[in-house]
Design a protein around this nucleic acid. Sequence first.
DNA 1: TTCCAGGGTAACG
DNA 2: CGTTACCATGGA
Length: 305
Amino acid sequence: MKYKASSIQLPEPFSMSEMIGYLTRSANECLFYVEADNVYRMIRVENEPVLVEITCRNDELEVWILDGIPPTKSVRVTVDGYVRDWFDLDRDLRPFYRQMEHCPYVSGLGRDHTGLRIVGVPDLFEALCWAIVGQQINLAFAYTLKRRFVETFGECLRLNGKEFWLFPSPETIANLSVAELRSIQFTSRKSEYVLEVAKRMTEGTLSKTSLMQSGDFKAAERDLVKIRGIGPWTANYVLMRCLRDPSAFPIEDVGLHNAVKERLGINRKPTLDELRAIASKWTGWEAYATFYLWRSLYHTFRCRD
DNA sequence: TTCCAGGGTAACG
DNA sequence: CGTTACCATGGA
């Protein structure tokens, strides 16, 4: 059973090779595959796991369903919406490029990587867990921890000798103990933070819908940082990659610091004041500027296997 | 071996 | 309030 769920007319600019460049930045990624320029991942549709293939043909993105529930209108709509959100296809990037022409540190990146869109993390629980896992450890280890988390507590589909994993649900994680998370080398702190988030999401006191309901990203940020384990960096990371606030700005981000350091040609990290001064040219597009600066750093966190 | 890593909390002055 | 110790382990 294989059927096409949707054909998405690609916005301009869009570069599939730039997107794949980002998606393949770690060989240790466990939630999707890239093979022959096609992208494969499992997503949950109406509480059922569905295996999706994304193919770029001419000016369209074709979304195929390879395994899972039969095609209905709502399945097609959900899958179509997921891909649009994941690749940020409904955003007009032309104002971003025009504005970056005035920033010497990012304008070159904008030209070199035209058509790169922020790869999102549409699932709020996944976004929060990934951010918490990534706190204060190098990215290679973060990918290892994520893989252990997913392969220990997630759901797996095996097809044609490959494994396709779904991120664990908040319900599954909320029932765990700190000790169980420590057994996969989470620190006690990370374990407590992730359990807290899982419990809130299971209770319904934390959800993407409730964070977005006011339509005010600043209000969402205030709600997020009230939660233990979520500071300004984590809140802005989630605003950037899940809630899709183009002005989210994780200014404490070490990757951002290192990218700016290289582009300034200095042998120390920029201060927060220096970052604020540079970012004053990015108003409204801080998330995109940050993502493009991350793109300039791939060589520093490539996984060795 | 040393230093740092896509931070955050809690305890201190 | 601003500063500091601590978390804890892998990777380079």
